[in-house]
Nucleic acid binder design. Structure first.
Lengths: 130, 130
DNA sequence: CTTGTATATGCGTATGTAGGTATATTCTTT
DNA sequence: AAAGAATATACCTACATACGCATATACAAG
């Protein structure tokens, strides 16, 4: 993964918002759809772009795909993600995303299992498919 | 100047090298040509791109155009330039650029006025046009 | 005013990217 | 096996970008 590839990934707002959200932990596609209020195909393509360039990893969990930042970190990516986090500290769009993310988690936990179990500390994935 | 614009400017190697060089002070076009070993049109277009997006400023000095980072700074640009500087600390290409820049300055000072006076503390621009 | 130097710009081409629609794939549920 | 949900991909269009060649512009020197 080169610096240039990182910056290419960073130069789209949707991808920036995705990366910003992933800094607080993994998420599945439908979460991005809901938080960013963007169509599935748009989210899915940007995630594919990020994955092809090594900025996110994915795993399947039942019908859901869970995305996260690379477990094996890179200094350049770490540095730039930290810089991004700092730069958007007061940005309304990114602040709103963070709030919606927190709200989403609370809602899912208190209601029914609407989406992937990685956000539901109560239910385990395997228990959904006996 | 938005974050996205900064990242768009950052996602080309030539532009990254130009910005990295400018962190140590202003330079004119022919310096970039020599240090980066790139054709004039390529340098000129990347500088125009950076200027249109607010990442560099230019002024004319005789026949030369001097480029520099914006005098009026922006937090996002500062942060990302600092991050860039840190990321390329050990990058051969950027290290070589820095060395060539230093060598260029020394050569110009000790020899004749080959290029713009901003790198020549001995001669002033006005003294070249009496 | 002409020549030469430094720099910018117009144009053409090739490639990358963003976004949409429609469809395919994969898994779950029944 | 069939239907439905979650996600990915193929294809299309519009637009941005990178680069080179040729040419224009701006200034300096004579």
């Amino acid at each position: 993964m080169s610096l240039i590839q990182i910056y290419r990934c960073f130069c789209d707002e949707t991808r920036l918002r995705i990366l910003h959200l992933l800094q607080k932990g993994e998420l599945c596609v439908c979460h991005f759809q809901e938080i960013l209020e963007a169509p599935q195909v748009k989210i899915s393509k940007h995630l594919a772009y990020l994955r092809e360039h090594g900025l996110v990893e994915s795993r399947r969990e039942g019908a859901w795909m869970i995305y996260r930042l690379p477990v094996k970190t890179f200094p350049e990516l770490d540095a730039n993600l930290a810089c991004l986090h700092d730069c958007v500290r007061e940005n309304p769009v990114f602040l709103r995303d963070a709030r919606r993310r927190a709200g989403l988690r609370a809602r899912i936990i208190t209601r029914s299992p609407l989406c992937c179990p990685s956000t539901q500390p109560i239910l385990k994935a395997k228990s959904l498919a006996p």
